[in-house]
């Protein structure tokens, strides 16, 4: 069965320029297609969803709303899945989302020591560092050291709570709203909510425009 007419690979590398892994991946996809297991266009759609539709903007929108709407914030902290589901424009979540709130007393940080579990519907696919050995090994033992790698220093007496996502419950950190943002719209606020601040390895951007 020749399936090469619908070549979905947009790059036109010579075979010899492809890495071994790339060749093997293509080979597998060819086998799966020829067996009628998958339709390549459906795979394209998954890739596109991950690359464009599902990303940290979802989480940022939720955080911005929590900052401006006390009733929403309360609902979010009680049952994040339900609260987020009420926002039509945010991607659908499963029923396992838990929002954890940063306060002056407590800073939250999320990890998956065993693999890469992550609230991807809120933040998109996890970054390489989140899934790699240094973070997975050190977050549960030396979170301050990890924060130092991110250039973040917390006050000595701030408690740090690390959440190891060992099951299907997923955690979204609700960072503290920066000072100097009074009266900002949700859209403006969403702009300063960084992905790392929703994992707990960073803080939101300061209003002055500094990164």
């Amino acid at each position: 069965m020749s399936g090469h007419d619908h070549d979905h690979h947009h790059d036109d590398h010579d075979h010899s320029e492809l890495t071994e892994t790339e060749l093997r991946v293509r080979a597998l996809e060819t086998v799966l297609t020829e067996k009628g297991y998958v339709v390549p266009a459906a795979l394209d759609a998954i890739v596109e969803a991950y690359e464009t539709r599902i990303g940290p903007r979802n989480g940022a929108a939720v955080v911005a709303k929590a900052w401006t709407d006390p009733a929403f914030k309360k609902a979010l902290l009680e049952d994040a899945s339900k609260a987020v589901a009420t926002l039509g424009h945010v991607s659908r979540v499963g029923d396992h989302l838990i929002a954890v709130e940063n306060t002056p007393k407590t800073h939250n940080m999320v990890v998956c020591t065993l693999c890469s579990c992550y609230p991807w519907e809120m933040l998109g696919l996890p970054p390489v560092w989140y899934k790699a050995a240094p973070y997975r090994s050190r977050a549960v033992k030396d979170p301050r050291g990890v924060l130092a790698d991110f250039g973040v220093t917390l006050p000595k007496d701030t408690d740090i709570r690390v959440w190891d996502s060992t099951a299907e419950t997923r955690f979204l950190v609700l960072p503290m709203r920066p000072a100097g943002t009074e009266g900002w719209s949700e859209e403006q606020l969403a702009e300063i909510v960084t992905r790392d601040s929703m994992i707990g390895t960073g803080l939101p951007k300061a209003p002055g425009g500094a990164k």
Partner: peptide, 23 residues
Amino acid sequence: FGKVEAEPNEPTFHETWEGRVIA
């Protein structure tokens, strides 16, 4: 395992094949 090294503005997939794999 050493330091945590974050890549700024990391793309969702570094190579095309990665997207194909997750799909």
